[in-house]
C-alpha cells in the first residue's frame, strides 16, 4: 500500500464532511428556535436513528464518496504495471487530461480531433435530445395532468411504464430491429411506395437518436406531470376568460408554473443521455461518435484505467457545469428542482 496525498484526500475529506454534518446537527440543536423540541433520537428511538445513520452513511461513503474520490485520484496518475505502483514513477501528472486534448501524453502539437469531436457532439446531441423529449412529453404530460379522467390516466400511466419493464439493452435491440434495413419501418415505407430502397437508419444515426430519446423519456414525463398536476385549473380558466388563446396560456401560465419540473426533468434526461452506454453501443452506426463508448474502451480495450477515469471525470464535470449554468440562467435553485 503506497501512501500519498491521494490516499489522504480519499479518507480525510469524507471525514471532514462527516464532521461538518455533525457540527451542523449540534448547532441546530443549540438553536434557540428549536428549544423544547425533542431531538430525532428521543422521538424515534436509538434503533431507528442508528439504522438511518449507518445505512445512509454506508451508502454515501462506500457507494458514492470513496469510489468517486479514488476515480479522481486515479485520473491524475500514469499507467504503470502493478509492481511499480507507489514507486518513484507513480506521481501526480496531467498526462491523461493532456491525452484527451492532444492525443498524446507528451506532444501538444496536434488536437485530439476524434475524441474532442465525439465529446462536443455528445454534449450537443444530448441537449437536442433533451429538447426533443420535452417537446414529446409536454403535451402528453399536460393531457394526463389537466385533461384526462382518472380511468384514462391510469391506463396511460400503465402504457407509459410497461415498456420500461424490459431491460435497457433489450429495448435498444428492439429499436435496432425496428430500424434495420429489413425492419418494420423500412418494410412499411417500401410497401407504401414512399421509398424504393431501404433507408440505412443505423448509419444515419436516426436509430441512435430515436433510441436515446426513448431511453429516458419517462424521466421527463413524470417530472412534467408532477409539476403540471399542481397547476390550479382555475388559473387556466382565468386566463382563458381574460381572452388568452391556448398557446398564450401554455407559454405564460402553464410553462412558467412547471419551470422547476422542466428543469429537473431536463437535468435528468441530459445527464443520463450524455452518460448512456447501451443505446450508443447497440444503435450507433459504424461512423457514429459518442463519448461513453470511448470511455468504455479506455477501461476495457486499452486497459488504461487512469485515462478512463480522466475521461469519465471530464464528462461528469462538463455535465455538472452545464446543468448549473442553465439553472442559473433560468434563476432556479437546486433545492427547487428537487421538489
Amino acid at each position: 500500500m503506497h501512501s500519498s496525498i491521494g490516499q489522504v484526500v480519499i479518507y480525510v475529506i469524507p471525514a471532514m464532511v462527516l464532521a461538518w454534518f455533525g457540527w451542523l446537527a449540534w448547532r441546530d440543536r443549540r438553536d434557540p428556535a428549536n428549544a423544547g423540541r425533542q431531538g430525532f433520537v428521543a422521538r424515534n428511538g436509538w434503533p431507528v436513528a442508528g439504522f438511518l445513520v449507518i445505512a445512509v452513511g454506508f451508502w454515501t461513503i462506500f457507494m458514492i464518496v470513496l469510489p468517486l474520490f479514488s476515480m479522481i485520484d486515479l485520473s491524475f496518475r500514469p499507467k504503470l504495471p502493478p509492481p511499480q505502483w507507489g514507486g518513484p514513477k507513480d506521481f501526480y501528472t496531467l498526462d491523461n487530461y493532456r491525452y484527451f486534448l492532444f492525443g498524446s501524453t507528451t506532444s501538444t502539437a496536434a488536437w485530439n480531433v476524434t475524441h474532442l469531436t465525439a465529446f462536443a457532439l455528445t454534449i450537443l446531441t444530448s441537449i437536442a435530445i433533451t429538447a426533443l423529449d420535452f417537446v414529446i412529453c409536454y403535451p402528453i404530460a399536460y393531457y394526463m395532468a389537466k385533461v384526462a379522467r382518472p380511468n384514462r390516466l391510469r391506463l396511460m400511466m400503465l402504457m407509459l411504464i410497461a415498456p420500461y419493464w424490459v431491460n435497457e439493452i433489450l429495448r435498444a435491440f428492439a429499436f435496432r430491429i425496428l430500424f434495420s434495413s429489413q425492419g418494420i419501418i423500412n418494410n412499411v415505407l417500401m410497401a407504401s411506395g414512399l421509398i424504393d430502397q431501404p433507408v440505412d437508419f443505423l448509419a444515419a444515426d436516426v436509430a441512435l437518436y430515436a433510441g436515446l430519446a426513448y431511453a429516458y423519456l419517462l424521466m421527463m414525463m413524470f417530472a412534467l406531470y408532477n409539476a403540471l398536476d399542481t397547476l390550479d385549473g382555475n388559473l387556466i380558466e382565468a386566463a382563458r376568460d381574460l381572452g388568452a388563446p391556448w398557446w398564450h396560456i401554455h407559454a405564460f401560465i402553464a410553462i412558467p408554473h412547471a419551470k422547476p419540473g422542466i428543469a429537473s426533468g431536463s437535468t435528468l434526461v441530459f445527464m443520463l443521455t450524455a452518460g448512456s452506454l447501451a443505446a450508443p453501443l447497440v444503435l450507433g452506426g459504424p461512423r457514429s461518435l459518442w463519448f461513453t463508448p470511448i470511455v468504455y474502451d479506455r477501461f476495457y480495450q486499452a486497459f488504461n484505467w487512469q485515462q478512463g477515469a480522466a475521461y469519465a471525470l471530464i464528462l461528469l464535470v462538463a455535465c455538472v457545469v452545464f446543468v448549473l449554468g442553465v439553472l442559473r440562467l433560468f434563476k432556479l435553485g437546486l433545492a427547487e428542482i428537487a421538489r
Binding site: 390550479d232 388559473l235 388568452a244
Partner: peptide, 15 residues
C-alpha cells in the same frame, strides 16, 4: 375568451 364578460373566481385565481 371571446365573450365580453370577466369572471372573478371563488379562489381568485391570481397568477
Amino acid at each position: 375568451n371571446q365573450r365580453p364578460t370577466a369572471l372573478i373566481f371563488q379562489n381568485l385565481a391570481l397568477f
